[in-house]
Simulated scan of single mutants.
Amino acid sequence: MAAATAIPIAAQADTGSSGGGACTWATEMSPRTLDRINVAYPDTNAWYWIMPYDIGPDTTLTIKGRFPDARYISFNTYDSNRANFTNGAASALADYRITPDAGSVNPWQQTSAPGGDYTITVRPDTHASDPNVLPLAPAGVTSGKGYLIYRMYMPAQTPDSSSLPQVTVTTKGVAHTYGSCVENSGGLRTQLLRGIQTLAEFVPGKMPSGTDFVRVAGAGAFPNGDNAYLVAGATRPADGKVVVVHAKAPTVPAGSSPSVWPRPGTDVRYFSLCNNESSVLGPVVYNPQPVGTADTGCRADSETRLDTAGFYTYVIADESQRAAVEAIPGATFVPWSAQHPGSTHILMLRNMLPADGFDSAIQRVAPGASAADTAARLGEYYPRSTVCDLNAVTTGTCA
């Protein structure tokens, strides 16, 4: 759910008003489901829960939850085409814009520990001035399907189903409160198979194949409007050479807990670089390890090493070269696919929620702008890729 489009597979469980076995958050895409669902260029530091709902002129959703211990959360509603929309209010609500319940504190609004309560309403009639309200559907749409997505980046602890927000669906005055069924792995597999049947509709448009980074638009299914992306094509070099990506890093909040936003001296809420295989499913690199874990192609800002001037150096290399790369001061190892090392890869750099004064955010680049214009706009924050001998990276002579 991630990349230029976010998740392409919608939940198959229904949440109509009958209450007959329905549940919320039936589809989860996260690090713990990556071995089963690895599509649409996911960021492996992000968690997504999807809930479809029936649109009706007298239908409302009430979301009650607690502010989690995480870097970022948001709620979005989408139309039947899996697209953002505006109907009085925008269909996206980021953490720092959520008004807490009476007696509670939003830790993205003022310094506080996580755990305060909030209530969000999804309804047909909305106004931009209404706090904690999302539109149910575009203007004039009174039937069909809509989608609610709850996003979380960099949780301090692994989320469980009991911590997810509670959703009450009210139709014609009758309210039903639904439990979560995200633990149903069998259902998850069924949803995946069903989703693949129509996946071509939701996969992002063709990614640029050039080796220079350019911005792609957030077209496709379930876009997260808080993110913007630069992408570049990459192919594993021969003779043990590596691909090096170098630029200045934007400043970010420290750690995985909420902090007041906007935050003076902080450029973006989050950034990452991910290495993905270029295929119809758009999987992120996923290399199982002998100890039972997996090394993925994503490196969040918290996993990115910087030099004394605040520049990163990502080194895309084989797993066998990892120790050598990690011995280089300021270098961050990113793996090629061990299963398909010869395939074309897509490097994707994300920026989330830029501060108003940060003029070198990816969001400031027009989608489709040339690499030269993008580099001119971003300056030292523009990522430049080079093929080098690993020894040249070690000695600092890779240019």
Results as ranks from 00 to 15, higher is better:
S18R: 04
A26P: 06
T27I: 04
E28N: 08
M29F: 13
M51E: 15
T59P: 10
S74D: 15
N76I: 04
A89D: 10
A92C: 05
D101F: 00
S104E: 13
G115D: 13
D117S: 14
D117V: 03
D117N: 13
D125M: 04
P131N: 07
N132Y: 07
V133K: 01
A137W: 08
G140Y: 06
T142F: 06
S143K: 05
Y150N: 03
P155A: 09
S163A: 15
P165A: 06
V167M: 14
V174F: 09
G179L: 08
V182D: 15
E183Y: 10
S185A: 14
E201S: 13
P204S: 08
K206N: 12
K206W: 00
G210L: 01
V216C: 08
V216L: 12
L230M: 10
T235F: 00
R236T: 02
P237A: 09
D239Q: 14
K241F: 08
V245L: 08
A247Y: 04
T251M: 07
V260L: 11
T266F: 06
D267R: 00
R269L: 14
F271G: 05
G282I: 03
G282H: 02
V284Q: 04
V285A: 07
Y286C: 03
Y286K: 01
G292V: 05
T293Q: 12
R299Q: 12
A300R: 00
S302N: 13
V315L: 07
E319K: 00
A327Y: 02
V334P: 02
P341D: 07
G368C: 11
A369Y: 01
L390K: 00
T394C: 02
T394I: 01
T395L: 12
C398L: 09
